[in-house]
C-alpha cells in the first residue's frame, strides 16, 4: 500500500529520520503465531518533524493507562516492527522490565532520546517498543547488528543516562534469533 510521503511542514523542526507509530494488541487465548502478529499490528501514522510527532503523541493514550496485552512500537519509516524485517533480522534489542507505574515516563524518555539522535550509533537504531503486560511492563530498543558490541554497549550506556532508572534495574540484551527460538 502506497502512502503519501511525509515531509516536515513550514517552520517545523525536521527529524534525522521519519518514523512510524504502530499499535498491537493480543487477542486473549490465541497463539502468537507470525501471521496473527502481523494481522494484529496496526499503523497509527508517520511523521517527519518534531511538531508532527507531538501531534500524534499528544493524542495517544499513555502506555501506563493501557489495559491488557498491548504494545506501542515506534520504528523508522520503512522498518516493520518484526524480527523478519531485513533491518531487524541480524539485530537484537535491549530489554528493560519495569514495575507498574514507570512505563509512561520511561517510554517518553526513550522515544525522545531516539528521535533526538541521542544514541550516537549511526544508522544502527531500528525502533523502540513498550509492552504492557499484566504484572510488569517492558520497554525495548532494537538495533540492526546484534554482533556489534561497541554499538550495543553505547546503546546501553545511553539508556542508563536518559531513562534515569532505579539503580537495581536489570537490562538484558537479546538477539532476535534467540527470541525466535
Amino acid at each position: 500500500t502506497k502512502r503519501k510521503a511525509v515531509v516536515p511542514g513550514a517552520g517545523e523542526h525536521p527529524l534525522q529520520y521519519n518514523y512510524t507509530f504502530w499499535y498491537s494488541r493480543r487477542t486473549p487465548g490465541r497463539p502468537a503465531s507470525t501471521q496473527s502478529y502481523e494481522q494484529n499490528i496496526k499503523q497509527i501514522g508517520s511523521f517527519a518533524s518534531v511538531e508532527q510527532f507531538w501531534r500524534f503523541y499528544s493524542h495517544m493514550i499513555r502506555p501506563g493507562d493501557l489495559t491488557g496485552h498491548s504494545d506501542f512500537h515506534l520504528f523508522k519509516e520503512g522498518i516493520k516492527p518484526m524480527w523478519e524485517d531485513d533491518a531487524n533480522k541480524s539485530g537484537g534489542k535491549w530489554i528493560i522490565r519495569l514495575r507498574k507505574g514507570l512505563a509512561s515516563r520511561c517510554w517518553e524518555n526513550l522515544i525522545l532520546a531516539m528521535l533526538g539522535e541521542q544514541f550516537m550509533v549511526g544508522e544502527e537504531i531500528c525502533g523502540a517498543v513498550v509492552s504492557v503486560r499484566f504484572q510488569e511492563d517492558i520497554i525495548s530498543i532494537w538495533n540492526k547488528t546484534a554482533s556489534d558490541q561497541a554499538t550495543t554497549a553505547r546503546i546501553r550506556d545511553t539508556l542508563r543516562r536518559v531513562l534515569n532508572l532505579p539503580p537495581n534495574t536489570i537490562m538484558e540484551y537479546k538477539t532476535h534469533t534467540d527470541s525466535i527460538k
Binding site: 527529524l15 518534531v50 507531538w54 501531534r55 499528544s58 525522545l112 528521535l115 539522535e117
Partner: peptide
Amino acid sequence: GTRIIYDRKFLLECRNSPIAR
C-alpha cells in the same frame, strides 16, 4: 553529513508550539 540532534528539553519545548497542536 550533519546529524539533527535534539535534547529532551528542546523537544518538550516544541510541544507547546502552536503548530504542534
